[in-house]
Nucleic acid binder design. Structure first.
Lengths: 203, 203
DNA sequence: GCTTTGTCGAGACGGAAGGTCTCGGTAAAG
DNA sequence: CTTTACCGAGACCTTCCGTCTCGACAAAGC
């Protein structure tokens, strides 16, 4: 019996192929518009107009605006925070935090991050993407911690440390009441390294 | 010369007065709807309908939806986290964090907080209100820390500690990847008390 | 070359939501 | 009993997302 919902096509793909130029033009337009907009929301129509593309071409390949933003962000991730492998946990933590803070200080990535969060507040699908993204960042940080097993107290709560780091990062990034400075990065790295080494205090 | 933009009325207020019942009905409707909606967005029309009130009556007294939400939230603040004054910094911090976490676990307040954040992502005016709100919370926490000067290292970075606490709180609250449990509250309180006592580690 | 098939740009369209405007009615002050 | 300001109700405008339609065009197979 034939399944009408069968995904396998009855014959190979024959029609016109995806236009790679359009894909690049869309992602580039997103980054340019976000950088120029200075935090103001960027609409789908604006993106399509700037990319010289029909809206349908966007929605054919991405399920929502948030998905486009996230792909543009990961495209930026060539400058991503690469996990260092230094001597001490404290040094590694500090350079990880510093790189994270610096990435967020660059207005190009900051604009994408901010828009992504705004989108996640509106679109549940975008919220899922953000959750996946933040989870991958947490995993990277956990791997860094696990790379220094001799410096970790046996009962150290790594999840707590990870969330303190990224919690402070997002909190300051979004509220912007205090800068994500290199000094703050150093202090945070040192404090969390000490916390990891001390383990939880006895009750 | 007469200033047409003069704010002072040429005579005392004479007309009909503000209906206090309507005000209460609006704020109550907001809380009820948010609690029932289970996180789904609540619209102005729904609020007006539920409160038996015209939309204009809402916009006459509040500049935006976010402002209504915030007033409803501060109305809830009778259950607010009251700064304790115990023996040790660690005990005070732990009970402060525990109370904060528990407040966010109550679905009634959690729904308002979530909606407020959603609104802040859209409406700059609401974002300002949220900034003011979070600032007052930070002030309360700083006051708690300052209440134990003998337990603070002279070079302790109080802003860093405050932001670690609220950063982790909001991060976990909004991402919900990990619970705001009493255990986590205890661990966080202990870790931050230790950090405050140790001060910044020497370079 | 011709047909089929899937993508392209452009834009009309529907729907949701916030916020404004209007209108007839009503309570308070004088 | 007149003026003033608020009230409920709802039409209305605007913005923006996401879908649908249309004629054009490119790739694959015959």
């Amino acid at each position: 019996m034939t399944n009408p919902d069968d995904d396998t096509p009855r014959r190979a793909h024959t029609g016109r192929r995806r236009n790679e130029d359009a894909r690049r033009a869309i992602l580039d337009a997103v980054l340019v518009l976000l950088a120029e907009s200075g935090g103001a929301p960027v609409t789908i129509d604006t993106i399509a107009r700037a990319a010289g593309v029909g809206k349908q071409t966007i929605y054919r390949w991405w399920p929502s605006k948030g998905a486009v933003l996230l792909e543009a962000l990961t495209g930026l991730a060539g400058d991503v925070v690469s996990p260092p492998r230094g001597e001490t946990l404290r040094a590694d933590l500090t350079s990880f935090v510093t790189a994270t803070f610096r990435g967020a200080r660059a207005e190009s990535t900051a604009a994408v991050l901010r828009s992504l969060v705004r989108e996640a507040a509106r679109d549940p699908h975008a919220a899922d993407l953000v959750r996946t993204f933040t989870e991958s960042r947490r995993d990277a940080l956990r791997a860094l911690l696990a790379g220094h097993p001799d410096e970790l107290a046996p009962d150290a709560d790594l999840d707590l440390i990870v969330d303190q780091l990224y919690g402070l990062f997002w909190y300051r990034f979004l509220l912007a009441h205090r800068p994500l400075s290199d000094e703050a990065a150093g202090a945070l790295g040192a404090a969390l390294a000490a916390q990891a080494g001390a383990g939880s205090v006895r009750p």
